[in-house]
Structure formats: C-alpha cells, structure tokens
Design a protein around this nucleic acid. Structure first.
Lengths: 357, 357
DNA sequence: TTGTAGGCGTTATCAG
DNA sequence: CTGATAACGCCTACAA
C-alpha cells in the first residue's frame, strides 16, 4: 500500500533504476522506446517522485521562501501577486514552490531567522518590507541562500526598493504648492515586528516606512521654510480608528492644520470620517493626501502616493531567479519610481467631478 | 565550506551520530551532560539540520499546503489569517511551514493536482474555496494526504463551509420585507479556475458561490410569490466595473428594479457608483445588499452578508491538525453561520445616521 | 546511556 | 545507451 518508488517503476518497465530516473527526468541519453516504456509504467503505477528524496539528492529544493508582514493587508497581497507574476513570467524554470512565512510580532521574526528553526530549506529568499537588522544580515551571510529584499535596502544585499522619503516629501510639497502652511502628519509607529529586542538599536537602524515618511515630511517643510512643529506629527495605530483619533487630536490644536499627510490609505479612511464628523469639508476645509494607493483609494477620491509594491515583488522575483541561475552574479540594487496620484481630497485645481468607476 | 552535518557535530562533541541526533531532537534517553556538550558543539559549528534529509528519513515534511484562488483578494488574505491563527493556537505542534499555491486559471488548478507536478509533498492539504471536481476527489483519495475543504463541501471529505444559498436567500428576503418586489441580482460568472476542461461538467457539479447565491435568490423570490425574471439576473465581471455595467443594464429595463442583491462587495462598489451617476439615490431610489462584508463595507454603509471566512480558515486548520494527530479519525463536516449586517444601503427602518468609524 | 549500521527515494558516477 | 552502486543527511532499531 505504500506509494510506488522509482524502483517499482524500473522493475515494471524492465529497466534499471538509473535508466528509469533518466527517462523520467527528461535526460537526453535514453532510447525513445525505453523512455516510452518507463513513462507508461510510471503512469500505470501512479508514480509520484518524492520531493524530499529529490531535494536530498539534488541539493536543491526548488522552493522559494517569502517572508512578509501580514499586517498591511493589501500591500501584502499585492506583493505576493507580483511575486507570482515574476515566477510565471520568468524565462527560467518557474515552477518553484512558494513557502510563505508571515511575521507579525518580533518573536516571529526572530524565529524566522533562528538557525534551530528547521523548515523547508529554500533555494532562495524574498524578504518583503522586512528591513534587515544586523542580526538578519549576519544570518543571511551564514546561510548563504540567495536573498532579495523587496521594499527594503541594505548595503551589499540585492534589493528592489522605493524612496519613501522622497515620495513623502513630494506629497507634502504638493500640499505646499496648493497654498497650505499648517500641514499635519499622521502615521503609525514603528511596526511591532521591527521591534528590536534589546535597546541597542542602531541610531540609524533599519529604515522603517514611517520613519522615512517623517523624514520626507520634515524635509518638505524645511524646503518650504516651515519650522518643525512636533504637535503636528501624530503617530497612531494602523487602521481607520487610529487615523480618526489622530485627526481629532489635530483639530483640537489652537492652530488646527488645513491639510494632512497620512502615511497609509487605511488611516486616511479614518481621517476622512473624523473630518466629516467634525463638520470639516474635504478638501475645502481640510486637504488630505495619503500613501500606498490601495484599490479603494480611487473610489474615495483619495489623493495618494502610488507605491508600486506589486511591481517590486515581481522585479524582486526576477532578480532572485536570475541570481539562482547565475550564482556568481553580484547583488543588484534597484529603485522603482513612485507617483503622486492626484484625486479629490487634496483639492487640486481643475478637478471637481466625483470619482469615476 | 559545505555546511556542517550532524556527523561534524557528533565528532566535535566526541559522540556518535546516533547520540547527537537524539540529543538535538530532544529525545529523553540522553545524559544531561552529553546533551549539553552536543548542543554546544552544534551551536559552535552553526549546525542546521537538513529539512530534506529529515523529511526523507521521517517520512513527514512538517509542511501544510494551502490551495487558494487569489482572485478574491480580501477573502484570500482573511482565510490565510485564519489559517495562521489556527496554526498558532493549536494544541499540537504548530510550527508547520505553509506552502501556498494560488490557482487563478483552470490550468493552475490542473497543474496543482497533477501527479507529475512535484513540489513539496505536504503532510496535509487545505483547499480554500476550491470546490472539488471529480478529478480532484480521486486525486485526493490516491494521494492519501489528509485534506480539509474550507468554504467548500463534498461527501466524504472533511470540510468547514457556509450555506451560501441560505445566506443569499436571507439577504433577498430582507429586501422583500422592506417592501421591494422588483429585485435585481448581480453576480460574477463561474470562476475561471473552476472551468471544466471538457464540456462534460456534471449538471449538479461542484457548487460555485455564484451558483449557490443565485439559487438562494430564486428561492427567496419564490417564497415571496415572485416569478423568475431572467432579465433581472446579471452575471458580469468581478470587480466594480462589472457591477457598474450590470446596474446600468438593469436601470435600462422598462421595469427597472428598486433593489439589487449583489454577490460581492467589490461589485457593489460599482453598483453604488453607477447608481449615483444615474441620479438614483441609495437607498431611497435603490436599495443595495451585497455579500462578504469586507473591511471597507462598513465605511460605505453597505448592507451585506457577513461570511466568516477567517473563522473558516482557522477552524479548517484545527480540523486538519487534529486529523494529522489522529490518523484514524473520520472526516468531520462543519458549517458556520452567516449573518446579514444591516447598514445604510438597504434602507432599513430606523437607520439614518452616516456610518461610524 | 551510547555507538553502529541499515534504510528513506533519488540522482550521479562509472563501468559495461 | 544502460545497469549497478555510491552518495545525499538524518533517524531509528539493534546491540553493546
């Protein structure tokens, strides 16, 4: 009752295991008739090669591991889609299996890069939005598994990234151009899975998106001659509730802002809602620009920064496959452009119609 | 330069490989000092057990395979979240690796269940929203891998499902109770990955969600004494564009409907938009009830059927782990309840305030 | 408690 | 072109 092995197939076909292996693996040096016989026998017996045995023998698992935070939902799915696209469109063998590993807490991340944690040993590693800690970097060096960072960067490591700081600065500059001077900033705090165990986080540690956006926000302010005003910067929970709370706090300020830059569309949702409940019209009383450009942003008329996470996933996969195919190649670092998508909430001139489907 | 094997560890610790294996695997019959010595040696050498060798030797891969359609995005992520929850909360060893396999086209599905397709051979299989075709059923029987269907059912197979027909009927009944008689139906056609290769699809083939919803729609009509009117039923592309097109068509009817039941929130988005552009107020001129209750539904005030996909994923995982732990156990079939979430778009009495964050 | 040896299913090597 | 046979790295009886 145990599943048939290649030996069973060989016996049924009246050949040796070596020949059976070659015939089934599509190796050239096998006579046509022999190959046909072996294949027929395999089909007859319902033979299925053992991936474990094959991996052990070949030394490769034909598997890619993807490490992603699950928290930013849409972002995650889009990245995954991009990865699948990259796999499907590849010029190399693309039938890699994908092992997904989600990290939501710091513990998950630590476990993910713990030598004692034995899972599938992948041929390659794709790290999505997981800024490399020093620990991770040494782990990567030791594990000598080709890795590509997606939406993150580190010297010496292959990556496909985006300049979040510049993107944020551009968004804020847009508000400045529209005449705003009191511009608030709403974002989430450092992600939980980025938490550093000890307090010895490097001062210029792995860049998180929120940190990069804040730098961009400040830079744009400075460029416009605006001073830094701590009260205008609000770090709050991810999601609409957080955004709503942040805006409520901003509106209570003596000098309430006339515009806000929000670090995610999800928080912007709450911002819009809180504005409406406070009787502020958007964009007349309050201009809103957010970040990511998730699918629903267009339905809300959200002016937002388009982050090409899907394209990053795709390109990252391509780079990984290329490195897998050419082991010697040096790690490539690429950057993809972002783009401010101007819709209604920023009150851009010349736009007044409701969003279209 | 090749990675250290257990033999290296054994040598370094001055013991035999057997002892090293037992010490590292946490087996009881090892002296405390010996174990410590082995573990120290392993740490020193940076030893990482080979999953492939372990899988080959143990006969288990410690891996779960999840087959999901990627098309319905939110649905997919939620199911995955539920699966992770189930894994994390399990009373059994929960450190299974997850191999994700997405099927978007019929070819993907065929490949997924092709004997010649060698990927990681998982210890268990979780099929999310993939109704079992006859072919799949026989494959499952042959592969003798414990499997659990999530959001699908089949006689003899373990499953966690939902009664989509009843849920749809309930949604339509709600509209009937509100006094509507001309009730339209908008849904997507059979999913592409369900396409049957030959035309020999069983008449009552694997139930797709759209099919179940349509049955529910018709049943509710019949229960209300309403005749079936083919013109009122529109199958259109998934997504807002499809929904918008469908509503436009419905509004062109001589007897335009005063209410619509839409098979997905994504399509409902387009329906709302098309209604607005046509000058129809919601819910005064047109009541809308949709399906799934995705996150953004509350922000749009959508009345919709809540489908507990996350809970299904979680429960399915629990069932799978239980079966893995107790091979003899018979397949369990469970159903989870759905619930109509009444918000604004259905015009339910006593609700007039804008949606709250 | 510990060491030794056989086997898991495949691929690769190397004679025929 | 084909058939034995030795790895691949680990686990697990079996013996000591």
């Amino acid at each position: 009752v145990s599943p048939p092995t290649i030996e069973d197939v060989a016996r049924a076909a009246g050949v040796g295991v070596g020949t059976a292996s070659r015939a089934l693996s599509g190796r050239p040096s096998v006579a046509g008739t022999t190959r046909a016989r072996v294949q027929a026998a395999a089909l007859e017996l319902g033979y299925r090669p053992s991936p474990a045995a094959r991996a052990l023998s070949r030394g490769r698992t034909h598997t890619l591991e993807v490490v992603v935070p699950l928290a930013t939902r849409y972002y995650f799915v889009e990245a995954l889609r991009g990865i699948e696209e990259g796999l499907a469109a590849s010029e190399y063998a693309s039938d890699y299996a994908l092992v997904i590993r989600t990290v939501e807490r710091a513990a998950d991340r630590d476990r993910a890069f713990d030598d004692r944690d034995v899972r599938v040993r992948a041929d390659g590693l794709l790290l999505v939005s997981v800024p490399p800690t020093p620990r991770l970097v040494t782990w990567l060096a030791r594990a000598d598994v080709p890795a590509v960072l997606v939406d993150a960067e580190h010297p010496g490591l292959a990556s496909v990234a985006v300049d979040h700081e510049a993107a944020a600065a551009g968004a804020v500059a847009h508000l400045v151009r529209l005449g705003h001077r009191r511009i608030g900033f709403v974002d989430r705090p450092r992600e939980p899975w980025l938490a550093v165990r000890a307090a010895r986080a490097a001062p210029s540690g792995p860049a998180s998106q929120p940190a990069a956006r804040r730098r961009g926000y400040r830079r744009a302010r400075a460029a416009a001659g605006l001073p830094a005003i701590p009260d205008l910067e609000r770090l709050t929970n991810y999601g609409p509730q957080g955004g709503a709370a942040a805006l409520a706090a901003l509106l209570r300020l003596p000098d309430a802002p006339t515009a806000v830059f929000v670090g995610s569309d999800a928080q912007a949702l709450g911002v819009l809602d809180a504005a409406r409940r406070a009787g502020r019209r958007v964009p007349e009383d309050l201009a809103v620009v957010s970040y990511n450009d998730v699918e629903l942003a267009r339905y809300l008329g959200l002016t937002t920064v388009r982050v090409p996470i899907r394209a990053m996933g795709r390109r990252g996969t391509e780079l990984l496959l290329a490195r897998l195919a050419t082991p010697g190649a040096p790690p490539v670092q690429e950057r993809l452009p972002t783009r401010l998508v101007v819709r209604l909430t920023s009150g851009a001139p010349g736009r007044a119609a409701p969003p279209k489907a």
